[in-house]
């Protein structure tokens, strides 16, 4: 079989995806990125969990105990999405900062293969980071997210997909508007966080903002997570809505990333990254 034919076959594709994943894992384990994955998230858990405990101790009663569960569950689930997004986005920025785009674009590597490789490596980061905050929330605040059992798995899967969709939007924004727009891209998650009701039901948001929350898949995913962990009802309605909304978001973010890549190539922006 010719090399060209092999490049177009699944085996060649898997090797390229694996190559990208291994390349970024080499960077992750040798760089200070481990702080982003497993150290800063633990301090986030400590911060938000402590605020919730303070609120409980100030107010008292079972409702306040639910607040602690809600906040701590929220921070654990938040890190599924944050780390998934962070992994792919950071890998892309690493290619830009180390001026690798010209080298990569002149190989048989397809853009989708690069994304899959970065996402695959990101799964390890998500596993390590979410594991760290799950243990921290149990040890520090006695909130055991794992007690929810397998019912929490689909929620985590949806947040993982949402994180990757956010990463595609970030990558698309940077390709379309150029480097220097990372700040704008990172800000996306800071907007999503309060609108999605990560730590509280969106019913407490100002009425004017609630319609925006209603169209975000994350709103339903975080609501389902709270429901699963505090056992206050069936999460499947929220999970169903979140699944549909996540699928729409994935399709939109993929389309935007493809559009941005084509624009990047058409405008010859590679010269800015060599």
């Amino acid at each position: 079989m010719s090399v060209i034919a092999d490049a177009g076959r699944p085996g060649g594709s898997l090797r390229r995806i694996g190559g990208v994943a291994i390349r970024h894992w080499c960077v992750t384990r040798r760089s200070p990125r481990i702080l982003d994955i497993a150290v800063w998230p633990v301090f986030n858990t400590l911060l938000y969990g402590s605020i919730a405990v303070y609120a409980r101790d100030s107010g008292g009663g079972s409702a306040s105990t639910r607040t602690v569960i809600s906040v701590v569950t929220g921070i654990v689930m938040w890190h599924v999405m944050y780390l998934a997004q962070n992994a792919v986005s950071n890998s892309f920025f690493h290619e830009i900062y180390t001026r690798q785009l010209a080298s990569l674009l002149t190989t048989p590597l397809r853009p989708a293969e690069w994304v899959l490789g970065a996402a695959l490596e990101g799964l390890i980061k998500v596993g390590v980071g979410v594991g760290a905050v799950t243990v921290a929330s149990a040890v520090m605040f006695g909130v055991h997210v794992t007690d929810a059992g397998l019912a929490i798995a689909p929620v985590m899967a949806l947040l993982l997909l949402t994180g990757w969709a956010m990463a595609l939007i970030v990558v698309g924004v940077v390709m379309f508007l150029g480097s220097g727009t990372e700040t704008l891209a990172w800000g996306l998650l800071l907007v999503i966080m309060p609108l999605s009701g990560v730590f509280y039901p969106v019913s407490v948001l100002p009425a004017v903002i609630r319609p925006i929350s209603a169209v975000l898949p994350t709103t339903y995913a975080f609501n389902a997570a709270r429901t699963v962990v505090d056992g206050s009802g069936s999460p499947w309605g929220s999970i169903g809505v979140a699944a549909v909304a996540t699928a729409v978001l994935m399709a939109a973010s993929f389309t935007f990333a493809v559009f941005s890549l084509r624009s990047f190539l058409r405008r010859g922006l590679i010269s800015k990254y060599t």
Binding site: V3, D6, A7, G12, R15, R16, G18, G19, V20, I22, R23, C26, V27, R30, S31, H94, E95, T98, Q100, S103, L104, T107, P108, L109
Partner: peptide, 18 residues
């Protein structure tokens, strides 16, 4: 790239080339 030894860098491209 940073945080990558030469052999790992070359191995990446060897994988990309199949």
């Amino acid at each position: 790239p940073t945080y990558l030894r030469v052999i790992d860098y070359l191995a990446l491209y060897a994988r990309l080339y199949g």
